[in-house]
Design a binder for these strands. Sequence first.
DNA 1: TTGTATGCGTTATCAC
DNA 2: GTGATAACGCATACAA
Lengths: 350, 350
Amino acid sequence: MSTKTKKVTINDVARMAGVSKRTVSRVINGSPLVGEETRKRIENVIESVSFQPDKQARGLASKRSYLLGLVYDNPDALYIDQVQRGALSICSELGYELVVHPCKWHEPDFVDNCLKFIARSNVDGLLILPPVSESKLLAKALQDADHPYVRIASADLDDHDNIVISNERAAMAEIVEHLVELGHNNIAMITGPLHYYSSQERLGGFKTSAQKAGLTLADNHIVEGKNNYESGLACAEQLLSLPQRPSAIFANNDEMAAGVLRVAHTLGIKVPEQLSVIGFDDNLFASRVIPSLTTMRRPVEKLAMLATQKLVGHFQHDGISTKVETIVDPYLIKRESTAKPQDKGAATAT
Amino acid sequence: MSTKTKKVTINDVARMAGVSKRTVSRVINGSPLVGEETRKRIENVIESVSFQPDKQARGLASKRSYLLGLVYDNPDALYIDQVQRGALSICSELGYELVVHPCKWHEPDFVDNCLKFIARSNVDGLLILPPVSESKLLAKALQDADHPYVRIASADLDDHDNIVISNERAAMAEIVEHLVELGHNNIAMITGPLHYYSSQERLGGFKTSAQKAGLTLADNHIVEGKNNYESGLACAEQLLSLPQRPSAIFANNDEMAAGVLRVAHTLGIKVPEQLSVIGFDDNLFASRVIPSLTTMRRPVEKLAMLATQKLVGHFQHDGISTKVETIVDPYLIKRESTAKPQDKGAATAT
DNA sequence: TTGTATGCGTTATCAC
DNA sequence: GTGATAACGCATACAA
């Protein structure tokens, strides 16, 4: 049996409160031009019949949909849930909904695809996750079309109204510090693809921090990976077959760090006794592998919340704190894969 | 510089085609009551100005939002991306968008929370993922309110119009078969929480298949876990300290299987030589752990696609194939963690 | 401080 | 087959 009750509209509320719907509208939208007593009366009615203004109608009349779009393309998107929850915690507070748009940002019609998404969904603005957030083309297209957006990224590559940044240089400093504290002075790095700003940022941070710590970085201790498991394997093989084998390897993400663990296992190199490994992301499996992985975690949910606030601030100028943070720091999760370096002589039996 | 062009409306199209907007509307909605020639003309205009009917206006007039809601609560939601892509591949074909609603289905106001979500977002229907899909309360509430929904689940617990099922009994048969083929006859199982239908389904399937294969299942070889890593550890410790230690363990999900691997490692039990381990889900880390995990994978994307088709079929009776599959089979991914059982005597050195 | 009138872009009713 | 015209629920110039 259906208990669906006919929707109560602004007219009903107006009638019940004995005012015109214009006044009800004012109350809904928080206009100050309403008598205190009138407002109270109307608010009571709204409360008692649990009236909710219709998003469709509202949007049609005001040119706003109260929908936010989430653009992403991380295939191993473990984050996606955290992002969605973070964004929605702000959204629901402000009366917005989140419409998702997974995409393939390497395909030629990618920008067009996003533009079409905006056109057909009428989203008021876009939240853009890495790595898509690094796309200049998309940003440019959105600016040209005056479409509000905020990107979540690892480098400072936009006006601070349009971006929230994870400070990955600071992250690298923390990583180097951790390794140096443990006594490592022979550190290698598997970078991500260097056409990514995020990869450059981390490499830059790594170099700077290493230098500050008085470490010398051999050129062949820095190799470029592809941010996937397979390339982690390849790079690890390369690094671990070096005559002067590093005592610690930082991999640009956990996927590649898992590759390092695998190769070390195959070669009989013990982690962390003979080799320390650090990843980045704190993926689901980081705490599950053996040994569990020391890694950097970004405050993903917070990033999403900040980005959402910032985005809504673009087109709604009430109830929103004007200034929201732009830069947040990742933090190190210390686990089993890092330790003091030991003599890396013959691999001793189990 | 903004290149935002004024939106072209149905009126523009009507004017350009020299007809009334009612006729254009007919064409848009595929009404048969339009002259062949008129239709062609209108379609051409629509094409040439790339007109897209406005969702808001459409919704306001027709009581439909062209939005679908996605309700889920999987904290380790690796699936969520696959689900969203699967659902959207159908959605975009049909002109729908996907609005996400992560929730906490164990909180008391959960059902109410979902109902409110529907009310404020105006979604036309709900896609419900496991484990939320097992909630009787939600299903009942939706039926009572006449809200279309489709759940994705592991057991046949609803009218086939409202559900898409992953056949997990068949999955268990495949698992048992695999182990038997390898020569195991001493198999243990770590179930999920037995108040889940999915857990019961798998346990039932396991027992049935084992019996068919002529295996005897010791009572103490079946322990109930909580589907998380920690309980995987606990259950594994219990099973592996048994005098008659099993030669193979099936864990209800990969998280718990990872726990088994960890305990085996700690106890010096070699996997797969002395112990075979099978998980369920093919989580991101299943292929990354050492040894990589043999596990069952559900065709998640396909499930999502079927569910979406089914859902849209509830309120749109054209352009949709009426009958879509209801049951799909998971399949076994064989990796390193399963092998022939060997003598489990003294642990031999590496 | 409050109300009137009009419009947003579609669908739906009914007449032609 | 086709076309005026009235909803749909809300916001907003403009009045009062």
